[in-house]
């Protein structure tokens, strides 16, 4: 029983981290209908930039954090302008493939700059685990959870109340109507990419803190695809909730099914969840039901 509780609590905390990356996917998808498969590499890049700022420039964490966010903003902007905008109106396979290509390029460039060796992140969060009485939460996961909740609330508030947020929702709803109401759809697209990059950079820093950073750490973002499909591709709240559900299920399969098949199920469980959701309810728990069926 204790072990079950522990697994669930760890899953909840890890779910926060998944939710943070899922947020990056959703922010971009919501406004531009593009699924950015380079998200994992964005994440890794964020972690590396923050790491370099901390180590080479020996900046304090808050400065490094702001610098990282600023660079994320710039990166999102540049990528949208150079790569995604010329492809507006092209078939969906082109758009998906271009993000895959982008991911492969980013991975190679990071490999060249930072070499593939594994590094551990300098300690930026207090290392004491949180004692809940019945179970312990490791510090990295706890802070990831906190960051995820704060990030979600900020983005939710932006979407709900700010002018930009409303413009983004309008664009997501109907681009032509938004255009005719005087919203600059181009600006919104660029902004969506910047926000998405920022969310994934924060996710990268948090994950880097938990597992250490290497060029390959971005692979975790592919598991997050299960999260966003479960939560619904265009639902911010769904992203976070999906993160919790997938992380807990993943930990439970690790606990109960691993002994039966000899390990490794934790890595593949999200993909099984993914396929099952796609079969039953492709638009997810909270997504808009716009899938056309033939």
């Amino acid at each position: 029983m204790d072990i079950l509780l522990q697994v669930i609590v760890t899953g909840l905390a890890a779910g926060g981290v998944y939710g943070l990356i899922a947020l990056g996917f959703v922010l971009i998808y919501k406004a531009t209908s593009v699924l950015n498969l380079a998200m994992g590499e964005f994440m890794t890049l964020g972690a590396f930039i923050c790491f370099t700022a901390l180590m080479q420039l020996s900046a304090p964490f808050y400065l490094a954090f702001i610098l990282t966010l600023f660079l994320a903003f710039a990166l999102g902007f540049v990528i949208e302008r150079l790569i995604l905008r010329p492809l507006i109106g092209e078939p969906i396979i082109s758009v998906i493939m271009v993000t895959i290509g982008l991911g492969v390029i980013l991975k190679g460039v990071m490999y060249m700059i930072w070499t593939p060796s594994f590094r551990s992140f300098p300690e930026i969060f207090p290392p004491e685990p949180l004692n809940l009485g019945f179970s312990m939460v490791p510090s990295g996961l706890l802070w990831g959870f906190i960051f995820a909740i704060i990030g979600t609330i900020i983005f939710l508030l932006i979407f709900k109340f700010s002018r930009t947020g409303v413009a983004m929702r309008a664009t997501a709803n109907d681009q032509q109507a938004a255009l005719s109401m005087g919203i600059s759809v181009r600006w919104i697209f660029a902004l969506a990419w910047s926000f998405g990059a920022m969310a994934s950079f924060i996710g990268g820093i948090v994950i880097g803190n938990i597992t250490g950073i290497s060029v390959y750490m971005g692979d975790v973002a592919l598991k997050v695809l299960a999260v966003i499909i479960l939560g619904g591709l265009d639902s911010i709240g769904g992203a976070i909730l999906g993160g919790f559900i997938v992380a807990i299920l993943e930990n439970l399969t690790g606990l109960y099914i691993d002994p039966l098949v000899g390990g490794g199920t934790k890595e593949v469980a999200p993909f099984f969840i993914l396929v099952i959701i796609l079969m039953i309810r492709p638009y997810g728990l909270f997504g808009k039901e716009t899938i056309e069926r033939v």
Binding site: L35, I92, I93, I96, L222, L225, A226, I229, L233, V261, G262, G263, G264, T265, E267, V268, F271, F272, L274, V275, L278, M279, P282, I291, R293, V294
Partner: peptide, 28 residues
């Protein structure tokens, strides 16, 4: 089979999942 129900983006994700599931089967 999912391609009959889902397409585009969703199909892409489904085949990606298949890739990882088969890789898992090959190893385990």
């Amino acid at each position: 089979i999912p391609s009959l129900r889902v397409k585009g983006l969703y199909l892409c994700i489904a085949t990606l999942a298949a890739q990882f599931i088969f890789e898992f089967i090959f190893v385990h």
